[in-house]
Structure formats: structure tokens, C-alpha cells
Simulated scan of single mutants.
Amino acid sequence: MIDIKHLQDWQGRGETRDDLIAAFPANALAATLDRDDKEYRIGDALPPLWHWLHFLPIHKLGESGYDGHAALGGFLPPVPLPRRMWAGSRLEFLAPVTIGRSAHKRSTVKSVTHKSGRSGDLVFVTVTHDVYEDQKHCIREEQDIVYRALPDPNVPTPTPPHAPTSCDFSRKIVPEPVLLFRYSALTFNGHRIHYDHPFCVGTEGYGGLVVHGPLLATLMLDLLRREYPAAKVTHFNFRALAPVFDTQQFSVHGTCANNGEIELWVAREDGALAMQGTAQIKDKT
């Protein structure tokens, strides 16, 4: 049984991290995404979402949990459910994060809630992140983390919704293990579902290595940047609907809506809608 009142004692808990925004992570991610960007240097602005390569929590190897994440009970509450996934985020890009500058991130546990679904108990933890350079507020983010039980083999897996079949632009992605390895390394993500196939399939019951949720979100905005290189993203929100595995290629899609909005989504090869989001842009042309 989930003791939600105990877990809610973590609401309001905060932590801060400082980082010097170096050029190497941006250049490494550009190479990982097969971009033809010029070399990122001091003074350049980070592309949207690339701040996720910074302010990384570092824990000793001996402090890892069974799944490779840091053991719970510190900043995040000790939710007694084994599966942990990044369910979505809502971001506002207020000012550029600049390579070569020192930056500061403040994180706070906003809420902890419990739900019961067809697959069992679900615990949602929402965390706010605010990124500053000096006193300049650069990024405001709310991140949703979902915890759930291991799948019951006697309960059918819910069928994800179908992805839209028409779009204005798209790109196919082959989720080879090197892509997942590089992104795990760049984000210091030790979660074993992204690289340990026996653990991912045999212990957590997935259909293959899991493509990182933030990588899918990054690929959605990367697609937007390829289509509209001069556009400035001011807002972006996304939510994950179904896992993407390394066993099948997937595709990223976009379509233009009204008032500078771009609808973005990730479609699995079987037609399932894996992630959807909306970006607000300006200066598209």
C-alpha cells in the first residue's frame, strides 16, 4: 500500500546546482543528433532543451539503486514502485543560456499525487526547475515523473492511441544502441532500461531497450529547428504516451497550427503515438 501522506512530506523540498556552461556537451549532442552545426563556442546560446546536459546530479556508484538511478529518499521521495519514467514537461524559454557563463538551477518538489489505474498504482511527482544566469531568469520548467509497478503478465498491455497520419514535415530515426549510449553518457543517466537489455526485458518487462523520454523531446525540437532554423522557441510542452524501443525505427513529425504554434509528435513504426507536444515559436522566417 502506498503511504501517500508520507511521500507528500517531500513537497516543498528543494535543491540547487551550479554549472559552468561548457561547449563540449553541445558539440557532442550535435554530433549525436547528426547535425551539421558549426562548432559551438563561448558566447553562443544553447539550443532549447540542451540545458538538460547540465546541472547533472552526480552520485557515487555505491549509492545507486537496483535500476542504476540514485537511491531514492534524498531530494525525490522514496516511492516504493520500481518503474520510473519522465512523463512530460512544460517549459518556458525566457532568455538564452550562454556557453561560457556560470548558471544556477533551483529545483523544488511541487506535488506528489497517487492514482490507481488499470495497471495498478501510479505516483506522480512534479518538480519545478528554474535556470538563472546571474539574476537573469532563463528557463522555467515543470517536470512530471511517474512511478508504477511492474507489469502483471495476466493483464493485457493498454493499447496506445494511433499517431496522426498526415504532417507538414517529418524525419525517421533508427534507435541504435550507440544513440542511446551517447545520450545516457551526455546526461550521466545510469538508468539500466536504456542500455542493459537483460534487465530491461527480463526484470522490468519492456519490449527492448527504452529510448529516453527527454531524447524523444529533444528530437522533436531538433526537427523543428531543421525545418525553421531561425525560429525562436518560447514555450514547449510534451507528454509521453507509450514507450519507444530499440527494436523498431520511429519517426518524428510536425505540423503548423495557428498563432505560431507547431504540433509535434513521435510515432512508433507500429503506428502508435509515443509522445506529443506543442511548441510556441516566433520569427519563423
Rank of each mutant, 00 (worst) to 15 (best):
I2N: 03
D3A: 12
K5E: 15
H6L: 15
L7T: 13
G12E: 12
R13I: 11
R13Y: 11
A22K: 14
A23S: 14
T32H: 07
D36I: 00
E39K: 12
R41Q: 13
R41D: 03
F55D: 15
F55S: 13
G62S: 11
G62K: 06
G74F: 01
G74I: 00
L76A: 01
P80L: 11
I99H: 11
R106L: 13
V109S: 04
V109E: 10
S111E: 15
V112E: 07
H114Y: 15
K115Y: 10
K115H: 10
G117D: 01
G117V: 04
G120F: 11
L122N: 05
L122S: 09
V123C: 12
H129L: 02
V131G: 06
I139E: 12
I139D: 09
E141C: 09
E141P: 05
E142T: 00
V146W: 09
P156V: 04
P158K: 00
P161I: 12
P161C: 10
H162S: 14
P164G: 10
F169L: 03
S170T: 09
I173L: 12
E176A: 14
E176M: 09
L179D: 09
L179Y: 13
L179E: 05
L179T: 11
S184E: 05
A185N: 07
T187M: 09
F188W: 15
N189G: 03
N189Q: 03
I193W: 02
I193S: 02
P198I: 06
T203R: 04
E204R: 08
Y206G: 05
Y206K: 03
L209V: 11
V210M: 02
H212A: 07
G213N: 00
L215S: 08
L215V: 04
T218E: 03
L219A: 05
R226D: 14
R226V: 07
E227G: 02
E227S: 13
Y228V: 06
K232T: 15
K232I: 14
T234C: 03
H235F: 08
F236Q: 05
F238T: 01
F238N: 06
R239A: 13
V252C: 12
H253E: 05
G254A: 05
A257L: 15
A257N: 13
E261W: 05
E261M: 10
V266C: 14
V266N: 02
Q276M: 11
G277E: 12
K284C: 06
